[in-house]
Design a protein around this nucleic acid. Structure first.
Length: 434
RNA sequence: GGGGAGAUACCCAAGCGGCCAACGGGGGCAGACUGUAAAUCUGCUGGCUCACGCCUUCGUAGGUUCGAAUCCUGCUCUCCCCA
């Protein structure tokens, strides 16, 4: 996965971010500083769940691009900061997780990051740190003496993340957050020669508290770079889908769903995604975008992008299955299903909701309504099932059915499966047992 | 502490004794169109029933009434104004 060529460093990381549309703001002097040679830069990840999601993917890719430009990326898992809660972009006080949950989340996140970054490079290996390591023995008194002393409350109040919450209120804990994160930066600067922190644009305030601390505590110079917050074409938040978050963990979001998420990007989004989430060069991106523009109906760009990212996250094998599943489920030919072996069928529908039904239920034929509700739970109520049937949105094995349809063993695929479908995108696999 | 306003289905928001399972908008789902798109148009959006209809739902607990989301009382919570 890491066989890609290193980019020409003269070309520069900042320039790379710029054409990829990933540069929102940066402190003067960063470009020159990075040009001096390999540098360390870090991004923090909140261990609020035991998996990262596509919303985090932007930051991950920043580190990836950073490493590909020859620098040393540091991923910080916020074991300590996760216990405090960042007020940035939040309208209400955050719930705190207990330590046990945080430890678990942190381990899972670490495993996911290892898929993207090269931790074994002889020249610029990525590094993973956990701020809990330097905070766990830090007492309150020591913190306010050594760190708090250097930053005025006036300075802290001026941050947007704090200002926006003064009306509704925020706890002292959240108020202190920027100092805690700022100290992270100081610590990494001091112990790891890390001179750059990156993050989403909502992190600007927290990052600059860090550079300020470094200057005041040590007279040192450090830098900040932020990326724009990604939104969908319709303005809504990126990374959410009907079912909620799109996770990187296959157990939470199946590779099929993950692939579909990217495939469903609008033309405009796909072009942006190509630049942000792939390793393609500018010329390669332009060529693909141009090719797509000539025949947008083929959605070649969405397919390329989806395949690339899914491979990065889930690997080649899973991606192949996701692509095949998509082709079968969305091709107009309905005969593809019958050709599948049991093995393939199960592969294709991994991640699709499933239920088991006793064979005896089908032996004398069962009304479609009962199958959809009582026996499988695919639809929540009979009323809903009737409505769906009236809309002619229900299909069995990809063939539309009417409300008087009854289902028997002759409908089974491979003698033991039944594919229920509502609309174009909602599938449900019934497995016959007994 | 005093005064006032309010709590309605996923969200916003009408209704203010029967015609209310509850206007309208948003969201969601589906159909047509299409590129598994966008835009647009259409339908649906508490449960059970083939259906007449029945049941549950308008903060909560009671009450008045033939009949209440609508009136009365207690309670809980939210917001605003004055101290």
């Amino acid at each position: 996965m890491f066989e890609h060529r290193q980019l020409d460093m003269a070309n520069g990381f900042i320039e790379e971010l710029r054409w990829r549309g990933l540069l929102h703001d940066s402190m003067p002097g960063v470009e020159e500083h990075l040009a001096k040679g390999p540098q360390r830069g870090y991004i923090g990840f909140d261990p609020t769940a035991d998996s990262l999601h596509v919303g985090n993917l932007v930051q991950i890719m920043i580190l990836v691009h950073f490493q590909r430009c020859g620098h040393k990326p540091v991923a910080l898992v916020g074991g300590a900061t996760g216990m405090v809660g960042d007020p940035s972009g939040k309208s209400a006080e955050r719930n705190l997780l207990d330590e046990e949950a945080l430890r678990h989340n942190e381990r899972c996140i670490k495993a996911q990051l290892e898929r993207f970054l090269d931790f074994n490079s002889p020249t610029n290996a990525a590094e993973l740190v956990n701020n809990y390591d330097w905070f766990k023995d830090m007492g309150f008194l020591r913190f306010i003496r050594e760190v708090g002393k250097h930053i005025t409350v006036n300075y802290m109040l001026a941050k947007d993340s704090v200002k926006n919450r003064l009306e509704t209120g925020l706890s002292f804990t959240e108020f202190s957050y920027q100092l805690v994160q700022g100290f992270d930066f100081y610590w990494l600067y001091k112990n790891k020669e890390c001179v750059l922190q990156m993050g989403g644009s909502d992190q600007w305030g927290n990052i600059t508290t860090g550079t300020e601390l470094i200057r005041r505590m040590d007279g040192g110079e450090a830098f900040a770079i932020t990326t724009p917050l990604l939104t969908k074409s319709d303005g809504s938040k990126f990374g959410k889908s009907e079912g909620g978050n799109i996770w990187l963990d296959a157990a939470r979001t199946s590779p099929y769903k993950f692939y579909q998420f990217w495939l469903n990007a609008t033309d405009d989004e796909a072009a942006r995604f190509a630049k942000i989430f792939t390793h393609w060069t500018q010329a390669e991106c332009d060529a693909l975008i141009e090719a797509h523009a000539k025949d947008p109906g083929r959605r070649s760009l969405q397919k390329e992008v989806a395949a690339f990212i899914t491979t990065l996250v889930h690997g080649k094998v899973e991606t192949g299955s996701a692509i095949r599943a998509s082709e079968i489920l969305f091709s107009n030919a309905s005969d593809g299903l019958a050709q599948l072996s049991e093995q393939q069928l199960l592969e294709v529908f991994e991640g699709v909701p499933q239920a088991e039904v006793q064979k005896s239920v089908l032996s004398s034929g069962i009304a479609i309504i009962d199958l959809l509700t009582d026996h499988t739970g695919f639809l929540p109520s009979k009323g809903e099932a009737k409505r769906a049937l009236k809309e002619s949105s229900i299909a069995i094995n990809r063939a539309k059915v009417a409300d008087d349809r009854s289902v028997t063993t002759t409908d089974l695929l491979n003698g033991k499966f039944l594919l229920l479908q509502r609309g174009k995108k909602n599938y449900f696999l019934v497995k016959i047992v007994g």
